[in-house]
Computed example of a mutant assay.
Amino acid sequence: MIDALPLAVLCVALLVATVSQRVAGMGFGLVMGPTAALLVGPIAAVVLVNVTAIVACGLILPRVWRGIDWRRLAWIGIPAAIASIGGLLLARVVSADLLRIAVGAVAILGVVLALAFTRTEHRLDGPITRLVAGSTIGVLNASVAVGAPAVGVYQIVSRWEPRAFAATMQPFWVLVSASTLLERQLLVPQGWPEWPWWAWAAVIAATAAGTLVAEPIARRLPARAVRIAIVVLSILGGGAVIVAGAIGLAG
């Protein structure tokens, strides 16, 4: 069961998260992960973030269909779906809060190094890079429900064009989130929020509203602004995970 006030906060977070997801192709878990963890608990948060990510990205998908890079999606999406099994198992044996702090610190370091890398003329986007990026994202999404920093690092070092990146991330997150939910049901079958139907209806309505608000914004933003948003969201994602872990340890 969930009270009206926490549900309202979740709905606002969902609207903001969906706008971020449409504009930059990432940031959904950044906004929803810490908010859901505080309001419904860390275990239910992973389930809730993945369920709502499927809804949000599924609603956005028809609007970006023509811009999707299907080849690159396969290269990073399939490893991510497989590696999410490891993330679920990791979350069972390692303290969730310690894991968040470690992940956040490594994520911020990764973004800083990736930005330094862009000062050179090189780019990293071969098969190995894609496999490593996809696997890392899958592990982080399944274990702490925040894969955005790893996604941002890959976008930076691969120099992936921001609009094509944002479009491809929609089916990517549908695939990864659906895989995580299926694997979680098989390996860790608990944590689903026990909500009445009207609470789920409110969540879906907030997500739908986010897609409507985001569409005109996404069309007007220049590519440079989207690129900056990806970097900022990646760093904020790492910081948010560290804070959530520190709060958990302090409590």
Rank of each mutant, 00 (worst) to 15 (best):
L140K: 11
I137F: 04
W160D: 10
Q155F: 00
T129G: 12
A142W: 09
V146K: 05
A142L: 04
G147K: 10
G138V: 07
V153S: 04
G147W: 08
V153C: 11
R159A: 01
E161I: 01
V153M: 02
S135M: 03
R159T: 01
Q155S: 14
V151F: 07
V153Q: 12
R159Y: 04
V132R: 08
G147R: 06
A150R: 11
N141F: 07
A150V: 10
A148N: 09
A133N: 04
Q155C: 05
W160K: 01
A150T: 10
Y154V: 00
E161D: 13
V132C: 09
T129D: 15
N141M: 08
T136S: 11
G147S: 13
P149C: 01
V157M: 05
G138T: 11
P162C: 05
G138Y: 08
A145F: 11
G138M: 06
R159N: 02
L131P: 12
N141K: 12
N141W: 06
V151D: 13
S135I: 07
L131G: 12
A145T: 14
Y154K: 02
V139I: 14
I156H: 12
T136R: 08
G134P: 15
A150G: 14
P162N: 05
P149G: 01
N141A: 05
A133C: 04
L131R: 10
G147I: 04
W160R: 00
V139C: 07
I137G: 04
A148M: 04
W160L: 01
V151H: 04
E161P: 10
V153F: 02
I137P: 08
V157Y: 00
S158N: 04
Q155I: 02
R130T: 04
V153A: 02
L131W: 15
V153D: 06
A133Q: 06
A148F: 06
A142D: 10
T136F: 09
E161N: 09
V151K: 05
P149M: 03
T136K: 03
V146G: 06
G134M: 02
Y154I: 01
R159Q: 02
S158I: 00
G147Q: 10
S135C: 03
V144L: 10
E161C: 03
V157S: 02
P149E: 07
V132D: 07
N141H: 14
V139G: 05
A142P: 07
A142F: 00
A145M: 14
A142G: 13
G134L: 09
S135R: 08
A150K: 11
G152I: 02
A142N: 11
G138K: 01
G138N: 11
G138L: 07
A148V: 11
I137C: 03
A142S: 03
G152V: 08
V151A: 05
Y154D: 08
Y154N: 03
G147V: 03
V153I: 15
W160S: 04
E161L: 06
I156C: 00
A150P: 12
A150S: 15
P149V: 00
Q155W: 00
G138F: 11
G134Y: 11
L140P: 08
V153R: 09
S135N: 07
V132P: 13
G152T: 13
V157F: 03
R159I: 00
G147E: 13
V157W: 05
W160A: 01
S135A: 15
E161V: 01
A148K: 11
S143E: 10
